[in-house]
Simulated assay, not measured.
Amino acid sequence: MTLEILTSDALTPLRHGFFTRRGGASSGVYAGLNCGTGSTDQREVVEINRARVADAMGVAADHLLGVHQVHSAEVVTATEPLTEKPRADALVTRTPGLALSVLTADCQPVLFADVETGVIGAAHAGWRGTLDGILTATVDAMVALGAIRENISAVIGPSISQRAYEVGPEFIDAFLAEDPDYARYFAGGDGDRMQFDLPGFGLNRLRAAGVGHAEWTRHCTYSDPERFYSYRRTTHAKEADYGRLIAAITL
């Protein structure tokens, strides 16, 4: 099966993509294109999957860069292939031939580009990282490399949608303590539970960071098991583990 790669006109003509789970070598609960080295999938199979992604991006396997994601606001500026994965949640570069990638399974994969200045970025933005400023930090790191803030396009890929993201009081309180206006990203649920709009919040943070264009592809990871891995869906199904989707961009 060939790879399925979702793209956005906002990032054209740069080679980029939000890869679905289709077209991979993994089996069982990981069936498809599991690119997560942190999963308990067979390491050699994950490497086959990652090699397919690198080939689709037109780079060597060791030029498909990633970080050890920790739900932080830390950004790595890459100028060459990484010998190890630093603890961070975003990468930026202006070096041709490097593909920046992030892994997700409900969190937001966000790809950035200022096509005119040749600066790109990729961020893993879960609720904690988004609240703590990972998207703003990524834009700032791109500007430090020469990007023009208002020329940056940012695209949020497949993420868990509001209708599938039920949260409790402590979660809600963390947002309202930061800014009472964040109440707009919560809709009524059962009892003391509410539904959180993660992509809506991500778009808010991107626009507040001053990017010229921000969009969400409007794909829900939880609701489409044939195409996407989902941590929350796996948890509800009481499965042992889950695959990780990959998103990547290169100059």
Rank of each mutant, 00 (worst) to 15 (best):
107 C>D: 15
52 R>S: 15
52 R>T: 08
197 D>M: 11
60 A>K: 15
81 P>E: 08
34 N>G: 08
148 I>Y: 00
210 G>T: 11
92 V>T: 09
32 G>W: 05
59 V>T: 09
121 G>Q: 05
41 D>S: 13
6 L>R: 15
56 A>R: 15
169 P>M: 01
155 V>T: 03
150 E>D: 14
176 L>E: 02
197 D>L: 14
209 A>T: 13
198 L>Q: 14
216 W>N: 03
65 L>G: 01
103 L>Q: 02
168 G>T: 07
180 P>V: 07
72 S>V: 15
133 G>Q: 02
138 T>K: 07
109 P>L: 07
138 T>N: 03
88 A>D: 03
158 P>I: 09
68 H>G: 04
217 T>M: 13
98 L>G: 02
75 V>K: 02
64 L>S: 04
240 A>S: 06
130 T>Q: 03
169 P>H: 03
146 G>K: 09
47 E>Y: 05
118 G>A: 05
163 R>F: 07
90 A>R: 08
245 L>Y: 00
226 E>P: 01
42 Q>R: 15
235 T>R: 02
131 L>Q: 14
81 P>Q: 09
52 R>N: 11
149 R>I: 00
213 H>Q: 07
207 R>K: 10
148 I>V: 15
97 G>E: 02
226 E>T: 14
237 A>W: 01
94 R>G: 15
144 A>Y: 00
125 A>R: 06
159 S>Y: 00
217 T>Y: 00
177 A>P: 04
25 A>F: 02
101 S>M: 02
134 I>L: 12
217 T>L: 15
214 A>Q: 09
226 E>Q: 12
186 F>T: 11
173 D>R: 14
174 A>Y: 06
